[in-house]
């Protein structure tokens, strides 16, 4: 097991594991947003903009994992 192999495995695992929880969280955001839109379609503007901001926060965590994976692979 040389360094190259471990680096490749590490890069793949980093993004795979790191993207798992944010994806789950974003799915739950979207589900709750759909539920509240179904209850009150008039609140679509407020709900949507807040959902986008919350999704951007969670996606940032996945992006951190991606950046680390890219750094492992290319640096």
């Amino acid at each position: 097991m040389d360094t190259e192999m471990i680096k490749n495995i590490a890069a793949g695992l980093t993004i795979a594991l790191g993207g798992f929880a944010p994806a789950l969280a974003i799915g739950r955001f979207a589900a709750e947003a759909m539920r509240s839109l179904g209850r009150n379609p008039e609140s679509s503007g407020v709900v949507s903009s807040n959902m986008i901001v919350a999704i951007a926060f969670t996606e940032a965590i996945a992006i951190y994992a991606l950046v680390v994976a890219l750094a492992i692979k290319f640096v």
Partner: peptide, 16 residues
Amino acid sequence: LSFSFRLFGNVFAGEV
């Protein structure tokens, strides 16, 4: 940190 990495990660990953 969060601002810079969010923007960097998204655009760099998109480029790749």
